[in-house]
């Protein structure tokens, strides 16, 4: 099959760009651990309140781990528990979240923290909070009539 010279140039340029994008995101994911949020822990969605750590939602200081704080969060229609999160600037925080009923979103506006919470699964994400201020937390997966009122607040304090 004959291909025009310029088309070869174009395909080379285009495919190289795609490879470059893949290399950048792949390298940061598999070398630096910047994976998208995930989770491999499974729980019974109807017994969330009884299961550790979700029997005690809130911000917990931890020692001897790669992160300084664990934020344990339970979502249900149409609110988050805890309703407000406060962590010190510069600390490394692990968000551990699940839902008791339908699928909810967990997005912290103005940050990369954006994950889906699915019944039966625990979603996790670790990050270092390096900007102070108040960040709105909202549900970004349609969950019912009160969806757009489902909010919380992340306060990063000095």
């Amino acid at each position: 099959m004959h291909i025009h010279k310029y088309e070869k140039w174009w395909l080379t340029f285009g495919i190289s760009s795609l490879v470059l994008f893949l290399f950048i995101v792949g390298f940061s994911a598999f070398h630096y651990g910047s994976h998208p949020p995930t989770g491999k822990v499974y729980i019974d969605p109807e017994r969330v309140d009884e299961i550790v750590p979700f029997n005690n939602p809130g911000v917990h200081k931890v020692e001897g781990k790669e992160w300084d704080y664990e934020v344990v969060l339970v979502a249900s229609a149409f609110y988050y528990n805890p309703p407000e999160i406060e962590v010190p600037l510069g600390s490394t925080v692990k968000f551990i979240a699940t839902t008791k009923d339908v699928v909810h979103g967990f997005q912290i506006v103005g940050t990369n923290i954006n994950m889906i919470l699915e019944p039966g699964y625990v979603s996790e994400y670790v990050t270092t909070v390096d900007k102070s201020g108040e960040f709105l937390i909202l549900c970004n997966e349609y969950c019912g009539i009160g969806h757009s009122t489902m909010t919380s607040m992340l306060k990063v304090v000095e």
């Binding site: 893949l22 998208p36 491999k40 889906i116 699915e118 699964y121």
Partner: peptide, 17 residues
């Protein structure tokens, strides 16, 4: 489904490729 739990990052990345 990139931000979902229950799917390993490797398989997500494979489908990204």
């Amino acid at each position: 489904q990139l931000t979902e739990p229950g799917i390993e990052s490797f398989w997500k990345f494979l489908q990204v490729v």
